[in-house]
Amino acid sequence: MRIAVLSGKGGTGKTLVSVNLAAAAKKSIYIDCDVEEPNGYLFFKPEDVQEEISVKIPKVDNELCNGCRRCVDFCKFNALSYIKDKLIVFEEICHSCGGCIILCPERALIERDKVIGKIQRGISYGVKVNTGILNTGEASGIPIIKNLLMENQFQGDQVTFVDCPPGSACIVMESIKDVDYCILVAEPTLFGVHNLNMVYDLVKLFNKPFGVVLNKCLEGENPAEKFCLEKNIKILCKIPFNNELGLLNSNAEIVVRKSKKYSDIFTGLLEAVIREVQYEATTNS
């Protein structure tokens, strides 16, 4: 069972929810796909093993290149230019499709590995913690996310929690495309509704079953809750805006391991999500 946690903006509580769900599940897998700024590991503090992740980019042998420019014309991303009898490769623009290498009639292009980041793996009690880290300045973390999700795909008996990057762009799509269920985390403001709407559109587009966690709930009106009620969206749980929670969280503590109250909240949420996934599985089979 794979569950993604996402939100339209940063700071709504994706990591709070996914880290604490993984901890509440006891034996589980946590995958931090927020590769530009992963922070789940700060809570789990696992003993890490690291592996570098690289992508394939073209390398030219200018002795063999005859300047036919087939590669330049082919590249849809314009990652190649041919200037003064020399081919120039723009590494940051290249999407590693490999088309230029296949097309080159002179075999002047070969593949070269370019390191773009790394994956850290470790264990925190029963939770297998996987963290993707994109090197600063790199354009796309998608190759790292593909790697993270691929290597964790055969452990079907454990619940996997995917902590997504914020927003609803390609990198989030990559993170959720193979999950069974999406949890959308929302803040109780108008801005929060706008951001919730972004991921709401996304999960509908992907035809994923989903529910909402309302975070930072205060007394009084909650525009995000109103949005859910209007759209008939399942509200999984309401997490109160609370000093104790904020303090524990800002000290990088996993609240379910520190407080009975929060252990109950997240265990309840976990049970609700598992029920939802099983309900989806039976109604769709």
């Binding site: 330049v72 991303f77 190649l80 230019s81 723009f90 623009i93």
Partner: peptide, 18 residues
């Protein structure tokens, strides 16, 4: 011809200039 490129318009445009 670079004007409508999805990305890398500057590179392609510079190629035209060169």
């Amino acid at each position: 011809s670079a004007a409508n490129s999805q990305g890398g318009a500057g590179i392609k445009a510079a190629q035209i200039i060169a």
